[in-house]
């Protein structure tokens, strides 16, 4: 058991090292970081003249949306590309034969590869999250400076109302920027891209080209956002449709993961409270889904002729 874990970790470390050296993934990461940092500029397009905390809510929302959007989008691309290239590259370079000739089980090889991708995704998300936090911090300092300037221009600045207004506006900006719920948002984004990676890995175990893997994973990701509609329809109106329609919708409901549930990230970014137990429930769902996908991948890969 321990030796098996050791082998998995060695393969994971090698996968991570190889992935970090790949230019395409690094370029994606750089684009992600640039997009996160430029979110401040985009947010200023929405409100060119700032004079109140009300307008800052809008700017902070923009920075949060673009920051988390970039983490999700570029994390998705990195997950898609890294998993799609995993097995085809090993086959092309014929390194897989050398590895499997050693006492390494196919399941260990596959799990090691997946753990390597997860580590790569964790690293990418961590880097992008740091850039996101720095951007938000900068936005906070700009906001607080604007509140101070606004207060300095007030005629009745020493009245309790003016002081209360100033304190409240400053507190609101700090509260929105240092929202601990952003941790929930980043965790959910990470879980979603790990699920995408697991889907990509599953497809790459039987696909003959990486383009097929990318296109199919992307389509499943898109369909996943409509899975909740298919599921609701299948459960409530399944009997009213033809057997073919019901079969197709049922297949989507039964096999495709519900990606739409993860859009509660939008609620967090909009400033609404999302309880931790809901987030943990979704994270558990994603974990179990990944385990099932890995199990199916192992079965397919075990029987694949290489």
């Amino acid at each position: 058991m321990i030796s098996s874990l050791h082998r998995i970790l060695i393969i994971a470390r090698n996968t991570l090292t190889e992935a970090v050296r790949q230019k395409v993934l690094n370029v994606l990461l750089i684009f992600g970081l640039v997009l996160i940092c430029s979110s401040v500029t985009v947010s200023q397009l929405a409100t060119p003249d700032i004079d109140a905390a009300g307008l800052f809510s809008e700017q902070i929302k923009f920075v949060k949306d673009f920051g988390c959007g970039a983490i999700g989008l570029f994390g998705f691309f990195i997950a898609l590309l890294s998993t799609a290239l995993l097995i085809p590259q090993e086959l092309d370079k014929r390194t897989i034969y050398t590895i499997l000739a050693k006492p390494v089980r196919r399941a260990e090889f596959l799990l090691g590869k997946f753990v390597g991708v997860v580590l790569l995704l964790a690293l990418s998300v961590a880097l992008m999250s740091l850039a996101f936090a720095a951007t938000l911090y900068w936005q906070e300092s700009v906001g607080l400076a604007a509140v101070e300037a606004n207060y300095a221009q007030m005629d009745l600045k020493h009245t309790p109302t003016a002081q209360s207004m100033h304190d409240h506006d400053a507190a609101q900006i700090i509260k929105q920027v240092r929202d601990p719920q952003l941790v929930e948002a980043v965790l959910l984004i990470f879980a979603k891209i790990v699920m995408t990676a697991a889907i990509g890995l599953l497809i790459s175990t039987f696909a003959t080209s990486w383009i097929f893997t990318i296109i199919t994973t992307f389509m499943i990701y898109l369909i996943g956002h409509g899975e909740s509609l298919a599921r609701t329809f299948w459960l409530s109106h399944g009997a009213e449709t033809t057997i073919w329609q019901s079969g197709l919708i049922g297949l989507i409901a039964l096999l495709i993961p519900d990606m739409n549930s993860f859009t509660i990230v939008d609620e967090i970014l909009a400033g609404n409270r999302v309880p931790w137990h809901d987030v943990l429930n979704l994270l558990c769902y994603a974990n179990v889904y990944v385990i099932v996908l890995l199990a199916v991948s192992v079965v397919i890969f075990d029987y694949r002729e290489i």
């Binding site: 959007g69 999700g72 898109l222 859009t263």
Partner: peptide, 17 residues
């Protein structure tokens, strides 16, 4: 459909401005 609802809404908001 790709789960970027908030970003789409933000882009439209730029048009409001």
């Amino acid at each position: 459909l790709s789960g970027m609802r908030s970003v789409v809404a933000d882009f439209i908001w730029l048009e409001v401005t």
